[in-house]
Write a protein that binds this DNA or RNA. Sequence first.
DNA 1: GCCAACGTTGGC
DNA 2: GCCAACGTTGGC
Length: 161
Amino acid sequence: MTKETVRQKTNYWIMKSEPDEFSIDDLQKKGISIWDGIRNYQVRNMIRNEIKVGDIALFYHSSAKDIGVAGVMRVVKAGYIDPTQFDKNSNYYDPKSKKESPRWLSFDVEFDTKFNKLISLSKIKQNPKLQNMVLVKRGNRLSISKIEKEEFYEISKMAQI
DNA sequence: GCCAACGTTGGC
DNA sequence: GCCAACGTTGGC
């Protein structure tokens, strides 16, 4: 089989954002948005190696009054150089990143669905089918993590009840 | 290369 | 606001 005929499997992700900074409503308004400001090497490597067009992601609201999964989005542009690392006016400015060797990557996502109600972290922790998610484990601090297709559909199901 | 000190994330 | 659990930095 040639390389061209290999169809890559869709990856499923959960991606955190502080809704005060950027919420599911902001994404819905914009339609398509850059996902920028990643300043962690593990996550950077995930963007570089795995996140690709067509991947599906849960939008998670973190560090807020109500925390949990707010909706669904799709990756529409794979990893590219995050412009905010060179922008002195940005919160994400990184003076150590050089134009010749940029450190950080961003990508683009498109709004798909906003859940009627937030699927709270506590509800997720109560669901026995979701106990393997990195999200429910202690010390999980990565803003993006991979999830199983089954976990994605389980959470989607919880949104419909 | 080790590791202490410091910074950040994020739930509670 | 607290603090656990990391990640990063920098002196040695």
